[in-house]
Amino acid sequence: MIEVEDLEKVFSVRRRAGRLRRTRHEVRAVGGISFTVPRGEMVGYIGPNGAGKSTTIKMLTGILTPSSGRLRVAGIDPAQERTRLARRIGVVFGQRTTLWWDLPLLDSYRLMRRMYRIPDDRYHANLARCTELLDLGDLLEVPVRQLSLGQRMRGDIAAALLHDPEVLYLDEPTIGLDVLSKAKVREFLRELNADRGTTVLLTTHDLSDIEQLCRRVMVIDHGRLMYDGDLHGLHAVGESERMLVVDLERELPPIDVAGCRTVKVEGPRQWLAFPAGASAAPLVAEVAERWPLVDLSVREPDIEDVIARMYA
């Protein structure tokens, strides 16, 4: 559905040098990335500010033209056929609305319907579905500027889906939302992906979005793709560790077993770190055999730590 090959975007930036002189600098916002997203996949696209996330999204939606590389979304070259592509994709910008600020939600939707030439039955079915699942019933007559951030975001997501897009781009869809709105949005996206097979590309700062929604994750930094694979693999790449917490019968010297290291001892409780990619079973077996074990638990590594380590 999305094919990206050696995609590059170079900006030429003028900087002030001295009082009047300006010098040109080339900034490589996206430096030769390649990936494909098959139909129906839900992919998380993450990276720190200025890593090239938004630039990539802007190229995928046809807002920006790439400097070089090959790009196809639903078989269309976004830079060449922006308006044709627009009918087949949906875009939600977390920080700014695509709705008409002074108009009631429903007026925006009616205009979208004509703009996208949505057949009557599709429009009514989609609107009814979004209204129900996103809880928009009471908001349809309210001007967009009077909506709360969470309400507006739900309104924006509905607007992006009225024309049955094959691809949905979500740029920070949960930024600034309260817990309840976040949960509702995630639930809706999960169902959308499962029922309709809509391909979803999601950029976010909130890694719990990714953990709850995406099997696959791509990490970009300094314009380069640092990782592309499943969440589990990210841990291995990030050299992250899981933690085995054991409660012994009494206070004992630090446990010494191959394949792990003891990072902390507090009375009878000890913390053993081992590679996230390794299985916990043999470790547990060995500890249980050689030490007087009362209780144990395994703690998963924090994905934020993993990513922070990748950027370092």
């Binding site: 807002i63 627009a86 700014r96 703009m115």
Partner: peptide, 14 residues
Amino acid sequence: RDGTMDTLLVRPVP
């Protein structure tokens, strides 16, 4: 300046 230009570019109208 406020960035809302981008929202116009993703609609199917010039």
